[in-house]
């Protein structure tokens, strides 16, 4: 097969992009291990002390605990609300369904800032801002619609005849949910949970707008650390950024085990 220039151009551009990306990540990782690094190709010496200092100074354990609590709460609540909603929206046609569909799409389509600022205002009004509850509430706004969106194809692929068969066997609605639908939806719920987890840990704007000093998640305290970088060495911020990216990478690797990224749009195949 003769090499076509278009192919080489594509791979070439991709390689260039990747090379720059590697440089960007490499620069941060290198700096996080650097004794000091000013205006040279490589740092003068290497040390791991910045990680320890960042861990202590930024109280990363507390931050990670908060991040974890917020993320788990958001996942659990959004699945509990989102799955029944997705079911009703997938299975019934009723007056007002279109409106509800749009309402569940808007929080994903809107930049978080646009509803984040009014939401923060409302939360301040009810004295919820700054608390963990406020952060969780704010993060639920895009998370619930995201669960609805992710679950819909999973629900649609379950043959309605299976539910009809369960009804004919005498199962009531609760039994259909617990005995038939829930076991069949486990892969979908797992996928949605993991994706919501990744999104919540990475969600900056909403947490930033609603968090107080004790309810900051990792991504927000990272931003705060960088904004006030003058006080502490750059390397500490960088080592914290590496910790953040490391945990996100871990989550993503787990997520990719459960979700095939190319099947996010096309219908998901029947679970085996």
């Amino acid at each position: 097969m003769k090499a076509r220039p278009a192919v080489w151009l594509t791979w070439g551009a991709l390689a260039f992009f990747m090379l720059n990306l590697a440089g960007i990540v490499g620069a941060v990782v290198t700096n996080s291990f650097a004794e000091s690094w000013f205006g040279t190709w490589l740092p003068d010496g290497y040390t791991g002390k910045w990680y320890g200092e960042a861990w202590r100074d930024y109280r990363l354990l507390d931050v990670l605990v908060v991040t974890f609590q917020v993320a788990i709460a958001v996942v659990v609540i959004s699945v509990l609300i989102g799955v029944p909603t997705a079911y009703a929206l997938a299975r019934r046609n009723f007056p007002g369904k279109k409106l509800l569909n749009v309402l569940f799409l808007l929080p994903i389509l809107m930049p978080p800032m646009t509803y984040g600022i009014p939401l923060a205002t409302v939360l301040y009004k009810f004295h919820l801002a700054g608390s963990m509850a406020g952060v969780i509430a704010a993060n639920l706004v895009p998370a619930v619609p995201f669960v609805v969106l992710t679950m819909t194809p999973f629900i649609e692929q379950i043959d309605t005849k299976i539910e009809a068969a369960a009804r004919m066997c005498g199962a009531n609605t609760v039994a259909i949910f617990t005995r038939v639908l829930a076991p069949l939806l486990v892969p979908g719920i797992l996928a949605a949970s993991i994706l919501v987890l990744v999104r919540t840990v990475g969600m900056f704007e909403l947490t930033f707008l609603t968090a107080g000093p004790t309810s900051q998640t990792l991504v927000v305290s990272l931003y705060e650390a960088m904004s006030s970088a003058g006080i502490r060495p750059q390397q500490m911020v960088d080592s914290m950024a590496v910790i953040y990216t490391g945990s996100m990478l871990l989550l993503l690797v787990i997520a990719l085990r459960f979700v095939n990224p190319t099947q996010l749009v096309t219908r998901l195949k029947e679970p085996a």
């Binding site: 005849k161 299976i162 068969a165 369960a166 004919m168 005498g170 009531n172 038939v180 679970p271």
Partner: peptide
């Protein structure tokens, strides 16, 4: 349907896959 107590066989069988 669950209160009528009839049995039904579906065209695609509709067996519970799990």
């Amino acid at each position: 349907p669950e209160k009528r107590g009839f049995g039904m066989v579906f065209q695609n069988y509709a067996l519970f896959p799990h």
